[in-house]
């Protein structure tokens, strides 16, 4: 944990991954939102943990953007006392990314949840099976194509009459 001193910004990794890091957007309240190419996922996670000192993986979220699928990691640095968001866009036809469990073991349940709810598969995950949904459940409820109902249309009809 060499450079774990406070104040180490994520832009320090730009030289290490000139191709893999697609950009770092400012995000108020955090160290930024780093967009990366899923191909470098595991190497980037290692660098983020060891060079930048983000030892705590707080959250893995999947977001369905219909054309693509986003996977978002929130990591926390005790030394810098701030979060960093890591975001990757995955192709919607076969969304997959390397599992972060090798770097942050706490990713285990987060990735199981993202896998079953948003249909993102995590390569080399030790135990990818249903967590919140029944075993063998056929649907991924947090995809946009999984419709609950159409409240907007219903309400408009009622008001127009």
């Amino acid at each position: 944990m060499t450079g774990a001193a406070s104040g180490v910004g994520p832009d320090r990794l730009l030289a290490r991954f000139p191709q893999g890091i697609l950009g770092i957007d400012p995000f108020p309240g955090t160290a930024g939102r780093l967009r990366f190419d899923p191909a470098i996922a595991l190497e980037l996670f290692r660098e983020v943990r060891d060079t930048l000192g983000y030892t705590h993986l707080a959250m893995v979220a999947g977001i369905d953007w219909v054309q693509t699928r986003e996977v978002l990691y929130a990591v926390w640095s005790d030394a810098g006392r701030r979060y960093l968001l890591l975001s990757a866009q995955l192709p919607a036809d076969h969304p997959h990314i390397e599992s972060a469990t090798a770097v942050w073991p706490s990713a285990n349940w987060h990735e199981r949840e993202a896998w079953e709810l948003v249909d993102i598969s995590f390569d080399h995950h030790p135990d990818l099976r249903n967590l919140l949904l029944p075993t063998g459940y056929q649907f991924h409820p947090l995809l946009r194509s999984f419709k609950l109902h159409e409240p907007e249309e219903l309400e408009v009809k009622v008001r127009d009459v």
């Binding site: 030892t55 705590h56 993986l57 707080a58 005790d78 942050w104 073991p105 706490s106």
Partner: peptide
């Protein structure tokens, strides 16, 4: 160390 590794808060 285990708490940090496993994300316990």
């Amino acid at each position: 160390a285990d708490c940090v590794r496993l994300g316990v808060t």
